[in-house]
Write a protein that binds this DNA or RNA. Sequence first.
DNA 1: TCTGGGGTCCTAGGACCC
DNA 2: TCTGGGGTCCTAGGACCC
Length: 425
Amino acid sequence: MPVFALIDCNNFYASCERVFNPSLNTRPVVVLSNNDGCVIARSNEARALGIPMGMPWFQARPLCQRHNVAVFSSNYALYGDMSRRVMECIGMFSPDMEVYSIDEAFLQLDGFTHRHLTDYGQSLKKTVYQWTGIPVSVGIGPTKTLAKIANRVAKKRTNTGVFDITDPAAQNAVLPTIEVGDIWGIGSRWAARLQTMGIRTAADLCQADPCQIRQSFNVVAERIVLELQGSACLDLEPVQPRKNIMCSRSFGTLVTSRNDLLEAVACFAARAAEKLRHQHSRAGGVHVFLKTSRFRPDEPQYHGSQTFTFDGPSSDSRDIVRAARKSMTALYRPGFRYQKCGVMLLDIAPAASIQPDLFHTIDYARKDHLMDVIDSLNARLGKNAIFLAAQGTYKSGKPPEWIMRCDRRSQRYTTRWNEFLRVRC
DNA sequence: TCTGGGGTCCTAGGACCC
DNA sequence: TCTGGGGTCCTAGGACCC
């Protein structure tokens, strides 16, 4: 029988901030989304103050000021690098690992059952903390879904941060105490529908008839029932190249100017192209969208999108930026105050397997070489050491209006030479 | 004044094919 | 009066995740 462990970092973003700033250990900590829009991470103390996840910052602000909460803009350079370290450490505890998100990983521990699994979890937790400073919780179970539940229990109801739900007795004890909406894969819509069917807890869902759940919902829901019953339907997933690559941002302030939009969309397109090349793929097309703010119902609303298809697949920033600007030009209407735009790359395929058509004239070798040079310069000298002029050059000396706000970002301690932690003795 | 970003999978229905 | 059967592919929309 398989054994899965789910390792989940506790309040990951808040914990990252604390690693480099121990004075935060005694203060509630909150991290804001991109553009300082809303709360996306909270330390336990901030949770206890009743600051809900997703609360807009302008609403959370008075509460935070009253309670001396430390508030940070998102610092993805830091979180991404800390995540890499944590994952590297977790990976030493089993050859079979799936990095599930920036702060979670599954391990398969089938071969480890001769050890005491809880002890093994303890030593993992201790090692990650010692090597990275990040606290984690470990849930162990016979399926991924049960391991998720075990992790929840580990985090909320144990002092040790490790919980093993492999034993059926443990399952019988825990499942009735888990609300159906807290099960992995059951969102708010399904939870509401299940409630009306009289299914309120994980134990209720576990006892439901999988076929009937499939008929009422779909195969995904059926799998959740089976997983709760202990038959593993979900394996560890190998890392797959992305099928879609998106880059979008809300603007720092609402934008009216066509030139600003062209500059913004060029930046997003260039960033998306970098991600595309990083996974050695090419895209068949570019999708651009542009919209006004749904939170301003009093203002005229505009939602537009446009798809551009390449003659042959491309990963060349110049092609992708050109296509994005062309689409933006077609989308733009004067007289609106725009809140957000974005670029999505479509029909992504591995660069190596591109089938050129009989009359193709694209010199891939030459284009790839240029992009390699750009990417390696930026890797060596820092982000945007070299970029396309269409991305804008800050001629006026101050950043353009569309640049997102991040007034409260901490130092990028681990990825910038000039932002190292300084300690005064 | 101020409300994130980036993904995945499944299903139903329509177009189209032989 | 009477109008097949079986398949694939694509898209939009809806659900979910962190």
